[in-house]
Simulated assay, not measured.
Amino acid sequence: MGTLAHTSVSGAIDLLSPPLRLRLLGQFRLERGTENLELCRNGQRLLAFMGLRGRVSRTILAGTLWPEVTEEHARGSLRTTLWKLPRGEPPLVRCCGDTLVVTPALRVDVDTLTKAAFGVLQGYGAPAHVPPPLGLLTVEDLLPGWDEDWVRVERERLRQLRLHALDALAETLVREGKPALALEAAWASVRTEPLRESAHRAVVSAHLAEGNVSEAVRHYHAFRALLNEELGVEPSPRFARMLPVRPPERAAAHDPGGLLGWSG
Protein backbone atom coordinates (compact mmCIF):
# COMPACT_ATOMS: atom_id res chain seq x y z
CA MET A 1 0.00 0.00 0.00
CA GLY A 2 2.83 2.37 0.91
CA THR A 3 4.45 1.82 -2.50
CA LEU A 4 1.22 2.56 -4.35
CA ALA A 5 0.67 5.71 -2.34
CA HIS A 6 4.23 6.85 -3.03
CA THR A 7 3.78 6.23 -6.76
CA SER A 8 0.54 8.18 -6.79
CA VAL A 9 2.07 11.15 -4.99
CA SER A 10 5.13 11.06 -7.26
CA GLY A 11 2.90 11.02 -10.33
CA ALA A 12 0.93 13.98 -9.00
CA ILE A 13 4.15 15.90 -8.40
CA ASP A 14 5.30 15.14 -11.96
CA LEU A 15 2.02 16.42 -13.36
CA LEU A 16 2.39 19.65 -11.39
CA SER A 17 6.05 20.19 -12.34
CA PRO A 18 6.71 22.89 -14.97
CA PRO A 19 7.52 21.31 -18.35
CA LEU A 20 11.17 20.99 -19.31
CA ARG A 21 11.95 22.06 -22.88
CA LEU A 22 15.23 21.88 -24.77
CA ARG A 23 15.43 24.02 -27.89
CA LEU A 24 18.24 23.11 -30.29
CA LEU A 25 16.79 24.57 -33.50
CA GLY A 26 18.25 28.04 -33.50
CA GLN A 27 19.87 29.35 -30.34
CA PHE A 28 20.34 26.83 -27.51
CA ARG A 29 17.75 27.23 -24.77
CA LEU A 30 16.80 25.11 -21.79
CA GLU A 31 13.48 26.12 -20.26
CA ARG A 32 11.57 25.03 -17.17
CA GLY A 33 8.12 26.46 -17.63
CA THR A 34 8.69 30.16 -18.35
CA GLU A 35 12.16 30.14 -16.73
CA ASN A 36 15.29 30.09 -18.90
CA LEU A 37 17.92 27.91 -17.22
CA GLU A 38 21.51 29.02 -17.64
CA LEU A 39 24.18 26.44 -18.45
CA CYS A 40 27.92 26.72 -18.94
CA ARG A 41 29.25 26.03 -22.44
CA ASN A 42 30.18 22.43 -21.64
CA GLY A 43 26.78 21.92 -20.03
CA GLN A 44 25.11 23.11 -23.23
CA ARG A 45 27.23 20.78 -25.35
CA LEU A 46 26.53 17.82 -23.09
CA LEU A 47 22.78 18.40 -22.95
CA ALA A 48 22.58 19.06 -26.70
CA PHE A 49 24.30 15.74 -27.42
CA MET A 50 22.13 13.92 -24.91
CA GLY A 51 19.00 15.58 -26.27
CA LEU A 52 19.82 14.28 -29.76
CA ARG A 53 20.82 10.77 -28.65
CA GLY A 54 18.61 10.12 -25.61
CA ARG A 55 21.06 7.67 -24.06
CA VAL A 56 24.78 7.19 -24.54
CA SER A 57 27.73 5.54 -22.81
CA ARG A 58 30.08 7.66 -20.75
CA THR A 59 33.01 6.61 -22.94
CA ILE A 60 31.38 7.77 -26.18
CA LEU A 61 30.07 10.99 -24.63
CA ALA A 62 33.42 11.93 -23.07
CA GLY A 63 35.34 11.04 -26.23
CA THR A 64 32.96 13.04 -28.44
CA LEU A 65 32.86 16.19 -26.33
CA TRP A 66 36.54 16.21 -25.37
CA PRO A 67 38.30 14.41 -28.26
CA GLU A 68 41.69 16.08 -27.91
CA VAL A 69 42.55 15.02 -24.34
CA THR A 70 43.25 11.71 -22.65
CA GLU A 71 40.35 9.44 -21.73
CA GLU A 72 40.98 10.04 -18.03
CA HIS A 73 40.90 13.82 -18.51
CA ALA A 74 37.78 13.59 -20.68
CA ARG A 75 35.96 11.50 -18.08
CA GLY A 76 36.94 14.01 -15.41
CA SER A 77 35.53 16.87 -17.52
CA LEU A 78 32.35 14.84 -18.01
CA ARG A 79 31.92 14.32 -14.24
CA THR A 80 32.46 18.03 -13.59
CA THR A 81 29.97 19.02 -16.28
CA LEU A 82 27.33 16.59 -14.99
CA TRP A 83 27.75 17.98 -11.49
CA LYS A 84 27.17 21.54 -12.78
CA LEU A 85 23.87 20.73 -14.51
CA PRO A 86 20.79 22.42 -12.99
CA ARG A 87 19.28 20.43 -10.12
CA GLY A 88 15.65 19.41 -10.08
CA GLU A 89 13.17 16.58 -10.07
CA PRO A 90 13.36 14.69 -12.26
CA PRO A 91 17.12 15.12 -12.83
CA LEU A 92 18.05 16.14 -16.37
CA VAL A 93 20.44 13.23 -16.79
CA ARG A 94 20.54 10.03 -14.75
CA CYS A 95 23.17 7.31 -14.60
CA CYS A 96 22.46 3.67 -15.41
CA GLY A 97 25.80 2.00 -14.86
CA ASP A 98 28.12 3.27 -17.58
CA THR A 99 25.19 4.70 -19.56
CA LEU A 100 23.74 8.18 -19.22
CA VAL A 101 20.05 8.69 -19.98
CA VAL A 102 18.25 12.00 -20.49
CA THR A 103 15.01 12.34 -18.55
CA PRO A 104 11.85 11.42 -20.50
CA ALA A 105 10.29 14.60 -19.12
CA LEU A 106 12.56 16.69 -21.35
CA ARG A 107 10.75 17.83 -24.50
CA VAL A 108 13.24 18.35 -27.32
CA ASP A 109 12.21 20.44 -30.34
CA VAL A 110 14.28 18.21 -32.67
CA ASP A 111 12.03 15.29 -31.69
CA THR A 112 8.96 17.31 -32.69
CA LEU A 113 10.50 18.20 -36.05
CA THR A 114 11.57 14.61 -36.70
CA LYS A 115 8.14 13.22 -35.83
CA ALA A 116 6.39 15.71 -38.12
CA ALA A 117 8.80 15.04 -40.99
CA PHE A 118 8.51 11.26 -40.76
CA GLY A 119 4.75 11.56 -40.51
CA VAL A 120 4.69 13.37 -43.84
CA LEU A 121 7.19 11.03 -45.50
CA GLN A 122 5.38 7.91 -44.34
CA GLY A 123 2.03 9.27 -45.48
CA TYR A 124 0.26 9.36 -42.14
CA GLY A 125 -3.05 11.00 -42.88
CA ALA A 126 -4.21 13.80 -40.61
CA PRO A 127 -7.87 14.65 -39.96
CA ALA A 128 -9.29 17.17 -42.42
CA HIS A 129 -9.52 19.88 -39.79
CA VAL A 130 -5.84 19.58 -38.82
CA PRO A 131 -3.58 21.97 -40.80
CA PRO A 132 -0.49 20.55 -42.52
CA PRO A 133 2.70 20.70 -40.38
CA LEU A 134 4.27 23.44 -42.47
CA GLY A 135 5.25 25.51 -39.45
CA LEU A 136 7.03 22.53 -37.87
CA LEU A 137 9.09 22.00 -41.03
CA THR A 138 10.11 25.64 -41.61
CA VAL A 139 12.34 26.08 -38.58
CA GLU A 140 15.87 27.28 -37.99
CA ASP A 141 18.90 25.05 -38.48
CA LEU A 142 20.32 22.97 -35.67
CA LEU A 143 22.54 25.07 -33.39
CA PRO A 144 23.81 27.54 -36.03
CA GLY A 145 27.37 28.64 -35.30
CA TRP A 146 28.34 25.43 -33.49
CA ASP A 147 31.17 23.85 -35.47
CA GLU A 148 31.73 20.49 -33.76
CA ASP A 149 31.75 17.54 -36.15
CA TRP A 150 28.83 15.79 -34.43
CA VAL A 151 26.71 18.96 -34.73
CA ARG A 152 27.52 19.41 -38.43
CA VAL A 153 26.59 15.81 -39.20
CA GLU A 154 23.28 16.05 -37.35
CA ARG A 155 22.55 19.49 -38.82
CA GLU A 156 22.90 18.17 -42.36
CA ARG A 157 20.80 15.10 -41.55
CA LEU A 158 17.97 17.29 -40.26
CA ARG A 159 18.28 19.67 -43.21
CA GLN A 160 17.88 16.80 -45.67
CA LEU A 161 14.98 15.38 -43.68
CA ARG A 162 13.19 18.73 -43.72
CA LEU A 163 13.75 19.19 -47.45
CA HIS A 164 12.39 15.75 -48.30
CA ALA A 165 9.41 16.31 -46.01
CA LEU A 166 8.64 19.71 -47.56
CA ASP A 167 8.77 18.23 -51.08
CA ALA A 168 6.52 15.36 -50.02
CA LEU A 169 4.12 17.72 -48.25
CA ALA A 170 3.84 19.87 -51.38
CA GLU A 171 3.02 16.79 -53.48
CA THR A 172 0.42 15.65 -50.94
CA LEU A 173 -1.24 19.05 -50.84
CA VAL A 174 -1.45 19.14 -54.64
CA ARG A 175 -3.18 15.75 -54.61
CA GLU A 176 -5.58 17.02 -51.95
CA GLY A 177 -6.53 20.01 -54.11
CA LYS A 178 -4.72 22.61 -51.98
CA PRO A 179 -2.28 24.20 -54.46
CA ALA A 180 -1.85 27.45 -52.50
CA LEU A 181 -0.60 25.54 -49.44
CA ALA A 182 1.45 23.31 -51.73
CA LEU A 183 3.20 26.40 -53.07
CA GLU A 184 4.04 27.52 -49.53
CA ALA A 185 5.69 24.17 -48.81
CA ALA A 186 7.50 24.12 -52.14
CA TRP A 187 8.84 27.66 -51.75
CA ALA A 188 10.04 26.88 -48.22
CA SER A 189 12.12 24.07 -49.73
CA VAL A 190 13.37 26.35 -52.54
CA ARG A 191 14.47 29.01 -50.06
CA THR A 192 16.44 26.41 -48.11
CA GLU A 193 18.19 25.00 -51.18
CA PRO A 194 17.71 27.11 -54.35
CA LEU A 195 19.35 24.55 -56.68
CA ARG A 196 17.24 21.60 -55.54
CA GLU A 197 15.26 20.43 -58.58
CA SER A 198 12.61 18.47 -56.67
CA ALA A 199 11.54 21.66 -54.88
CA HIS A 200 11.14 23.48 -58.20
CA ARG A 201 9.17 20.58 -59.63
CA ALA A 202 6.82 20.95 -56.67
CA VAL A 203 6.38 24.66 -57.47
CA VAL A 204 5.58 23.87 -61.11
CA SER A 205 3.22 21.07 -60.07
CA ALA A 206 1.28 23.46 -57.85
CA HIS A 207 1.01 26.06 -60.63
CA LEU A 208 -0.24 23.42 -63.06
CA ALA A 209 -2.79 22.19 -60.51
CA GLU A 210 -4.25 25.71 -60.48
CA GLY A 211 -4.24 25.83 -64.27
CA ASN A 212 -1.55 28.52 -64.31
CA VAL A 213 0.43 27.12 -67.23
CA SER A 214 2.22 30.37 -68.00
CA GLU A 215 3.54 30.66 -64.42
CA ALA A 216 4.66 27.03 -64.51
CA VAL A 217 6.56 27.58 -67.76
CA ARG A 218 8.13 30.83 -66.52
CA HIS A 219 9.29 29.14 -63.35
CA TYR A 220 10.80 26.25 -65.28
CA HIS A 221 12.78 28.64 -67.48
CA ALA A 222 13.91 30.70 -64.48
CA PHE A 223 15.22 27.59 -62.74
CA ARG A 224 16.81 26.36 -65.97
CA ALA A 225 18.68 29.64 -66.36
CA LEU A 226 19.87 29.55 -62.74
CA LEU A 227 21.00 25.94 -62.99
CA ASN A 228 22.86 26.65 -66.22
CA GLU A 229 24.56 29.69 -64.75
CA GLU A 230 25.54 28.11 -61.44
CA LEU A 231 26.38 24.53 -62.48
CA GLY A 232 26.42 24.51 -66.29
CA VAL A 233 23.82 21.71 -66.44
CA GLU A 234 20.23 21.30 -67.60
CA PRO A 235 17.18 20.24 -65.58
CA SER A 236 16.30 16.58 -65.80
CA PRO A 237 14.13 15.24 -68.67
CA ARG A 238 11.57 14.36 -66.01
CA PHE A 239 11.17 18.05 -65.19
CA ALA A 240 10.82 19.03 -68.84
CA ARG A 241 8.13 16.41 -69.38
CA MET A 242 5.95 18.04 -66.73
CA LEU A 243 5.30 21.02 -69.01
CA PRO A 244 2.48 21.00 -71.56
CA VAL A 245 4.77 22.82 -74.02
CA ARG A 246 8.25 21.71 -75.05
CA PRO A 247 11.01 23.98 -73.63
CA PRO A 248 13.56 25.42 -76.07
CA GLU A 249 16.91 23.70 -76.49
CA ARG A 250 18.88 26.31 -74.58
CA ALA A 251 18.11 28.01 -71.28
CA ALA A 252 17.59 31.74 -71.42
CA ALA A 253 20.52 33.83 -70.30
CA HIS A 254 18.38 35.80 -67.91
CA ASP A 255 15.85 35.18 -65.15
CA PRO A 256 12.39 35.71 -66.70
CA GLY A 257 10.31 37.86 -64.45
CA GLY A 258 12.89 37.79 -61.64
CA LEU A 259 11.33 34.61 -60.27
CA LEU A 260 14.56 33.36 -58.73
CA GLY A 261 15.54 36.52 -56.92
CA TRP A 262 16.26 34.56 -53.73
CA SER A 263 19.62 33.35 -55.08
CA GLY A 264 21.34 36.63 -54.47
Rank of each mutant, 00 (worst) to 15 (best):
A165W: 02
R45P: 00
A128G: 03
V190Q: 03
V139P: 00
L39C: 11
E193H: 11
G257Q: 04
L15G: 05
G26D: 13
A74C: 06
R23T: 15
L85G: 04
G232V: 06
A170L: 05
A188G: 09
L20D: 00
Y220D: 05
T64S: 15
S214W: 05
K178G: 01
D14E: 15
V120S: 04
D141P: 06
A222Y: 06
L20I: 12
M50W: 02
L39P: 08
L121F: 09
E230L: 11
Q27M: 08
G264M: 10
G119I: 10
L46E: 09
L243E: 02
L227P: 11
S17F: 00
L169D: 06
A170H: 02
F118R: 15
P256K: 00
G33T: 06
V151I: 15
L46S: 08
H254A: 13
C95I: 05
S57T: 15
Q160Y: 04
E197W: 01
L78D: 05
W146N: 03
D141A: 11
M242L: 14
L208E: 10
W262P: 09
E210I: 02
A5I: 14
L181Q: 14
E234Y: 14
A209P: 01
E68R: 10
A216P: 08
R159G: 10
D147T: 14
G261D: 10
A225I: 04
G261S: 13
R79M: 10
V69F: 02
P256A: 01
V213W: 04
L195A: 13
H129F: 14
N42F: 03
L30S: 09
R75A: 04
Y220M: 07
L37G: 03
L30H: 06
F223L: 07
V101W: 03
N42M: 01
G2A: 12
E234D: 15
D167R: 11
L106C: 08
L92I: 03
A186T: 07
T3Y: 05
N42T: 09
R238N: 05
Y220P: 11
R159N: 11
C95F: 00
T81W: 06
V153E: 14
Q27G: 05
A116K: 07
E31M: 12
A5N: 09
T70Q: 11
P235C: 13
P179R: 10
N42E: 15
G135I: 03
G26H: 13
R21N: 08
L195I: 07
W150G: 03
N36H: 12
P91C: 06
T59K: 14
E184W: 07
T103V: 02
E193I: 07
L161C: 12
P132I: 00
F118N: 15
P235W: 13
P90V: 03
E154W: 02
V9L: 15
P90D: 06
P19N: 13
L243R: 01
Q44Y: 01
F49D: 01
A185F: 03
G63I: 01
R155P: 10
R238W: 03
M50F: 02
N212L: 09
G211H: 11
T59F: 10
A253L: 13
A182V: 11
K84H: 14
S236R: 08
E148D: 15
V233L: 14
E171W: 01
L158W: 08
P67M: 07
E89Q: 12
P248A: 11
R246F: 00
R196W: 12
